[in-house]
Amino acid sequence: MSVINTTIKPFKASAFKNGKFIDITEKDVLGKWAVFFFYPADFTFVCPTELGDVADHYAELQKLGVEVFSVSTDTHFVHKAWHDASDTIRKIQYTMVGDPTWEISNNFEVLRADQGLANRGTFIIDPQGVIQSVEITAEGIGRNAEEMMRKIKAAQYVASHPGEVCPAKWEEGAKTLAPSLDLVGKI
């Protein structure tokens, strides 16, 4: 993806959070770790399972200093109606962003313009607003919040430990690598 290692672009949107409508911009994202979790549409099938999975891990994400923004091209009004109608969605405490103008979906390059829907995309963003991780899946493939959290922990580790990188399947507390000339060909 061409958005990796780029700074998030300016946007303004209405959202639903904790029973209220709020306005957000890219400035609300800066200064903390964030996840933008795009999905095709409210009142669908795979989407609520994914959003519910993230909701089940939200307290742990908050302990990691991570804010979550779920985004679809539905309005914030539809997010509220879905929240009121679904037991799974009712447990969501993070921000549900409406993107009916497609501005945010275009900014993150996940818009299916011919359908007016966003692809399933997960973006991990550092406190400077730089996109550190991108995952895009096909329509029928649901994502896993535990794997997302592993990637967040790896991104946070790398950010706080210059000169170190996290190898495949890295878990918090596991050995990292320090790339150097001496390491070439020895892994």
Rank of each mutant, 00 (worst) to 15 (best):
S14M: 14
S14K: 12
K17W: 02
N18A: 13
K20E: 15
F21M: 10
I22D: 02
I22C: 05
E26Q: 11
D28F: 02
V29F: 01
L30M: 09
L30D: 01
K32M: 10
A34F: 07
Y39S: 08
D42Q: 09
D42F: 01
F43R: 14
P48C: 13
T49M: 10
D53Q: 04
V54W: 05
A55G: 02
D56H: 01
Y58M: 02
Q62E: 15
L64A: 12
G65Y: 11
V66G: 04
E67W: 07
S70H: 05
S70P: 02
V71F: 05
T73M: 09
F77E: 04
V78R: 10
A81Q: 15
W82Q: 11
H83V: 12
A85N: 15
S86E: 12
D87P: 12
T88A: 14
I89A: 08
R90A: 15
T95N: 04
M96A: 06
V97R: 00
T101F: 05
W102L: 11
I104W: 06
I104P: 04
I104M: 06
S105G: 14
N106M: 10
R112T: 12
R112N: 12
G116K: 07
G116Q: 06
L117V: 09
A118H: 01
N119D: 11
N119G: 06
I124D: 00
I124Y: 01
I125S: 04
P127I: 02
Q128A: 11
V130M: 00
I131G: 02
I131M: 05
I131L: 02
Q132K: 14
S133E: 13
I136F: 03
E139G: 12
E139W: 12
R143M: 10
R143L: 08
N144P: 05
N144K: 08
A145H: 01
A145R: 01
M148T: 07
R150I: 06
A154I: 03
A154V: 00
A154Q: 00
A154M: 04
A155W: 03
V158Q: 09
A159I: 06
S160D: 12
P162N: 05
G163D: 04
C166H: 01
K169M: 13
E172Y: 09
A178N: 09
P179D: 04
D182I: 15
L183A: 15
V184D: 00
K186M: 12
K186Q: 14
